[in-house]
Amino acid sequence: MAKTKTIKINREFPLYLMLLPAVILALVFSYGPMVGIVMAFQRVLPGKGLFGSPWIGWDNFKYVFQMPNFYQVIWNTVFIAGLKAIAGVIVPVSVALMLNNVTSKLFKRTVQTVVYLPHFLSWIILAGIFVDILSPSDGVVNLLLKAVGMQPIFFLGNDNVFPWTMVATDIWKSFGFGTIVYLAALTDIDPTLYEAATVDGANRWQQTWHITLPGIMGTIIMLTTLSLGNILNAGFDQIFNLYSPLVYRTGDIIDTLVYRTGIANYQYGVATAVGLFKSVVSLLLIGIAYKLAAKFADYRIF
């Protein structure tokens, strides 16, 4: 018994070794900083270190929940992140299905690669580009709208349009990645099912509806439920680089609020309180999402 155990450990040792860097990184960059959570319960005095400032209980949280725009900010965050999550399923799945029906391999691979490329660009660069192409007076998008006789739209300055602009540009940037995941899932579907369907006289549309979609449904449900944990992450990089006072009403999200109060105005305690609030809600949502994923898609980690 003892011998087999030693052999097992010997055999698995290299695997544990390979795990080590990731564990260290997680400890240093994810678990270590958690000590800073104490700041949420302190009146943070600069230079006093983590435990030198006076404890004030829940005062920071009370302050946060009394901020006049806090509920609006939460709603903005959920709204933008929720739309991103929904569109983040529909768009890649549709594109993957369409590509799956393309017979030219060259075309398929070219499209895959091209739609994947924006994934590698940073929002700093993209923000500059989007300000240009979305400009209501001489941006490409609005020139097209004008050409077909529509009124130009101030995508980045109109607070009714801004959240939708954020969703659309984010999807444009990231749907290539999702597409590749779904394409990979599609390869798992047994080709004999299609042959059988063809023999039965099913057309392309019927095949997609009755074979392809059910075949990848597990992956879709899994990715969707898991994205629930991100419902309070509306995309700091993107919004911080594209928003302006004009669209604070609908565009200000939790992370930008934390940045402005915490980093720019030195209210570290308040910012930590907001951040902690966000983390707790996210943790609950991830828990729920995991249960849902286990129930509907039989996806389990533990």
Binding site: V131, S135, P136, S137, L156, G157, S244, P245, L246
Partner: peptide
């Protein structure tokens, strides 16, 4: 400028 609301000093 119709878009001054989104234009910073660089623009």
């Amino acid at each position: 400028d119709q878009e001054f609301g989104v234009k910073d000093i660089n623009q």
